Amino acid sequence: MTDPRPRPKYGEYAPLPPAAPEGVTEPTTGAQYPAPTVQTAVPNVIPASTPTAPPERKQRMWDVFLTATLLLFGVVDVINSFGTIANLGPILREGLAAQGFDGFAADEAAAEAGAVANIVRVVALVLTIVFALIQVQRKRIAFWIPLVGATIATLAMLVAIFVAVLSDPGFMTYVDSIQQQ
């Protein structure tokens, strides 16, 4: 016996009631079971060939607003700090002088580290904007993407500052003299 219905997916059809073969009588009552029938039309069944569309996601306006605000803060931060990070030598000299070290002389290393930090920060900002817009377009939560981008940009700036400061041999002798005391 072949079933004309499409092969069922898990949970799609309820099982048919058990049926005895035709002409078999029940031993206690002598009643005869009817012959089993094949059901050819199943109501409310979606044919297997038509794909079902996923449910439409709802746009979260709070997420769009928060993501746009965080991206705007990132753009303003990169633009405002670009010149400062590019000219990192005098900034480090002033900061270290306030801590008691007056002999910072690694201006070239600070300029190179600042240039690398600026490149990483701009690339991180562009990638953050692209990925955040993709997530917003797909109606998924996206506010976390600018936070991750800001973390990456901050780490790049901190690494640049550490490289510039630790490349100065005078600073390393100053640290050794402090440890000797």
Rank of each mutant, 00 (worst) to 15 (best):
P36Q: 07
P54E: 14
Y174L: 03
V122W: 02
N80L: 08
G11E: 09
A105D: 07
A142D: 01
D107R: 10
M157I: 05
V76C: 08
A115C: 02
F131V: 13
E26M: 11
V64G: 00
V78E: 00
D107W: 04
V24P: 00
L166T: 11
R121I: 03
Q39A: 12
G95E: 07
E56V: 11
V165S: 00
T37E: 13
L88D: 05
F162S: 07
K9Q: 15
A86K: 11
Q99C: 09
E12I: 09
L16Y: 11
F101P: 00
P47C: 10
L166I: 06
T67H: 01
P146R: 04
R138Y: 09
G95D: 06
A156Q: 02
R60L: 15
Y10E: 15
V175W: 09
R138P: 05
A97E: 12
P34E: 10
L166R: 11
W144C: 02
V136E: 00
Q137A: 10
E26V: 15
I119M: 11
T151K: 02
V78F: 01
T151L: 14
L125W: 00
P169M: 08
A48R: 15
V165A: 03
Q99I: 06
F171I: 10
V42G: 12
G103T: 15
Y10V: 12
S81W: 02
Q32G: 03
V24R: 07
S167W: 08
T151H: 04
A48P: 02
T173I: 12
I79H: 02
T29W: 14
M172Q: 10
G89D: 04
T173R: 13
P146S: 14
V159P: 00
D77V: 05
T25E: 14
V120W: 08
V38W: 14
L88E: 05
F143I: 02
